[in-house]
Computed example of a mutant assay.
Amino acid sequence: MKIIQAPMAGAQDAELAIAVCRAGGIGSLPAAMLSFEQLQNELQKLQTQLDSRALYNLNFFAHQTPTISDLQYQRWLDLLAPYLEEYGLRIEDIPQGKGREPFNEASLSLVEKFRPPIVSFHFGLPDDKLLGAVKATGAQIWSSATTVAEALYLESKGVDAIIAQGFEAGGHRGMFLNKDLSQQVGTLALLPNIRKAVNCTVIAAGGISDARTMAYAKAMGADAVQVGTAFLLANEAKITPEHKAALQSPAAQHTVITNLLSGGYARGIPNRFMQDVGAIHVDALPFPMASLAIGLLNTAATKQGKTDFRSLWAGQNAILTQPGSASEIILRLQNG
């Protein structure tokens, strides 16, 4: 069964994707936290270091940029006030802007220039015009679904593959039709229901960290698997030493869904901020706006050797993972 390395923004660059491709998997490059110039450089590395026939996946966020009211912003500032004071920061220090940009015309220009074999999206799909232009390059189109309704929507838009993202998955949930967490289910329930509902390729994601969980996914109808947390421990990944240590500690046995760090629901190991105010808070700004202030606080905390605001993303089966090279991790996934 084909192994796809999940795109993990902030935790990798082209090096991991290249290593996975060379080991027989499908490597992924996440664009979400890269500038235009950085993404162009990483794509250049992929094209110069991989065989022209190698399959790799270029991933983008397709979220809708939110509009926030003055009241929403003030409530967020009120929640953050004690921490800003603790770290000697001012409200004026918080960066302004939209946060991470969704897929746009600039992104499309790079897709048209480099023509990656696979282009995937998280948080739905871009508008029909942009999507049509991506299809015109000949790329396969993949996108994440966290419910059957999302899978049916994606199939209606002509995607080539649907990534069935179970509730166990680390990092950001790909939710896009609604934000109701009560509708989110684990891979064991989501995968067979999506498999029954659609006719396109279905990729299982969430909780797949070893050969046994891969076998379960195959038995439930998955055409391939997407693995994230296991590759965080790859030598080629770029996570911090603190994140790597947390993934290999008892702390990784308890992950939670939070909206505090970016405004979007995501699974990770609790940090101090999440423990103080609760993992999910009504006053968190919507995705990706919360990340502007949290990034500032995280930088200040990191300078003091603290992880108070660090994103320690991890799936629920992190306990099954082991460090090593990307090729060693793929061999363990395949053979146990």
Rank of each mutant, 00 (worst) to 15 (best):
N57Y: 12
R22A: 05
A23Q: 03
L46S: 03
I26H: 07
I26M: 09
I26E: 01
P30D: 01
A19I: 04
F60A: 15
G27W: 04
N57Q: 14
C21D: 02
A54F: 13
Q47A: 08
L58D: 03
D51V: 10
L46M: 14
P30G: 04
S52L: 10
Q49K: 14
L55N: 14
L43N: 01
A32M: 09
L55W: 15
L39H: 01
L43V: 01
D51C: 13
A54R: 08
L43T: 01
N59M: 14
L50M: 04
A32H: 08
Y56L: 12
C21G: 02
A32I: 09
S35I: 05
V20W: 00
D51P: 15
F36H: 12
Q44C: 09
Q47L: 10
L34M: 11
Q40A: 06
Q38P: 09
N59H: 14
S52W: 01
L39E: 00
S28G: 07
T48L: 05
G25V: 05
C21Q: 04
S52R: 13
D51A: 11
Q40F: 00
L58I: 07
L34Q: 11
I26D: 02
A32K: 12
N57W: 13
S28C: 09
F61W: 15
P30E: 01
E42A: 01
T48N: 11
Q38H: 07
A54T: 13
R53V: 14
F36M: 03
L58E: 02
L29I: 06
Q47W: 01
P30K: 09
G27N: 05
L50S: 06
